[in-house]
Each structure stands twice: as C-alpha cells, then as structure tokens.
Design a protein around this nucleic acid. Structure first.
Lengths: 132, 132
DNA sequence: ATGACATTTCGATATTTTCCGATATATACT
DNA sequence: AGTATATATCGGAAAATATCGAAATGTCAT
C-alpha cells in the first residue's frame, strides 16, 4: 500500500549499477547459474550473489535451484515492466554487453564442472577484462 | 569513447531518485519553470535546481530561458530512449505522480508572479502530500 | 561424518550521494 | 546606481551504497 513511487525508485536503483545491469543483460538469452556469471564477468562470486539478490528483490529475475547450483533467469517477457523491456533493448546494443554475451556463450559451451571448480589464477584473462 | 554502459548507468541513476522522478513526470504534460515546480512539490528551490541539473546532464530535459525564468521541458518523444518512454508511462500511473499533476494544474492556473514571489511563511507548509 | 564445492551473508572500509541553508550570479525594474 | 526576484552553486555533515575477503550455510558424494 502506498509509496509506489518509492518502489519504482528502488527498482530503478537496482538497475542503475554497472555490474547489476551487465548481469541482467547476460540473462536475457537464457538462464545461467551464479558460477557461470562470475566466470563470464570475471568478478568475485560474492559480488554476483549480491547483485542477484538486488535484482531478485526488484522483481527482475527469478531463481531455480538445482542441487548446489542456483540458476537465475529473467522474469517472463509478458510480466516485465515497460521500462525494463525498453532498458533491455537499449542495453543489448552496448558493446560491453555484447562482449559479455560472447564470453557467456563460451562459458556455456563448457561443462559446468570445468567452469566452476577453478581457482582464479587459472582463468586466462581475455578481452581486456582485468582481475587483480 | 567507450563505456557506453557507464553512460546508460548514469542515466538510470538520474531517474532513480524520488524527487527527480517526480520532477520528470511533472514535465510530461508541458514545460514548467523552476519556481512552479518548487511550489508544486513543496521542496526547496535549490533541490529542484539540482534535480533539474541532473536530469539535463542525463539528457532527459531541456531548458528555455525567458528573462529570469528557466522553463524546463522533456525532450521530444521521438528523441526519448526506449526505457524513458516506458518509465514515463509507468510513472504516470502512480498516485503520487497524479497528485503532483493536480497540484501543478492549480499552480499553472495562477499568475507566475503570485506563485513565485512568496516568502516561505506564506506557504501552507506540510511536506509532501497535500490536497490541492 | 568428512570433504568438496556453490552460494549467501557478514564485516569493515572506501566511496558516493543526499539534503538544504547560505551564498553567488543573473535578470528586471525603477 | 539600488532593490527585488529567479536560479545556480557551494559547503559539508549525515546517510546510503559499493566492494570484496572471510566466514557461514547448504548440498552432494564418498
């Protein structure tokens, strides 16, 4: 009840953040689990987890648990708000987002066990994405 | 060049703020000057000025100077980004926004000299919600 | 139960943002 | 010139947010 403005502002804040926006865009083609996202974006998994928590709170993504993995996906198109649909369309054109998606394709092509049971050092840096 | 993602995030941050979103929505029916907005929303003039600066930086509004007044208006529909159009549509449904617009109608019905040349004491006070 | 691993939460610091009164600038009128 | 009004900017303290390693939690497989 009431303060729907505040709610909308919270949803906008959730998306007004580089990592969260990248994660959101990354999910558009389909679900990914937390470790796949962390590997794709080359960021600490706790950061991904926190990003996803905010996106979930804002109602943009939903989770599906499968064993120890947590797969996140966008809410269905028909449930998405107007501005979210516009935003996703706009974000899809960004070079950063397109690069992320290429990396995600490569990550999805690998078995999950190969992707996730990795120490950070073993990950070869690509595309100028830096880590430590 | 580059970092268009950061630019988009900055634009999202600009609207992820209660006052700025209210101001933005207030301008949809047509231009208003700073003092009309401050009177309508019952907030300090410096806050309105700062809100408008951010919205201008983000490319959502443009200004038209007329003497000592500065009238702000939304950028033309056809220049608006996808997510902005969606956002405005969504915001228009919010009760807070609708109340603001009623107040704005009342303010516009008065002469500008009556609206703006007011000492704070004469303003019925009461922050935020008030009837027209 | 022990270990391995995915994920979340915690803790603590660093950075950014908010807010508004006070002050500055600009324009108009006399 | 001076006064009045409209808007912009400054200052700076409080609040919110970001960040990420470390610890906690949960889940599966021996």
């Amino acid at each position: 009840m009431a303060d729907e403005l505040r709610t909308l502002v919270e949803r906008l804040k959730a998306v007004a953040h580089p990592l969260r926006l990248r994660v959101l865009s990354l999910l558009e083609p389909g679900e990914l689990c937390v470790c796949q996202i962390a590997e794709t974006l080359q960021v600490p998994q706790s950061s991904v987890s926190e990003a996803l928590r905010e996106l979930r709170r804002a109602g943009f993504v939903v989770e599906r648990k499968d064993g120890r993995w947590v797969f996140m996906s966008l809410i269905p198109q028909d449930q998405a708000s107007l501005f979210l649909r516009g935003l996703l369309g706009e974000a899809a054109a960004l070079p950063e987002v397109q690069r992320d998606r290429l990396r995600a394709e490569a990550v999805k092509a690998m078995a999950i066990s190969v992707v996730c049971a990795k120490t950070p050092q073993e990950v070869p840096a690509e595309h100028g994405v830096t880590r430590v």
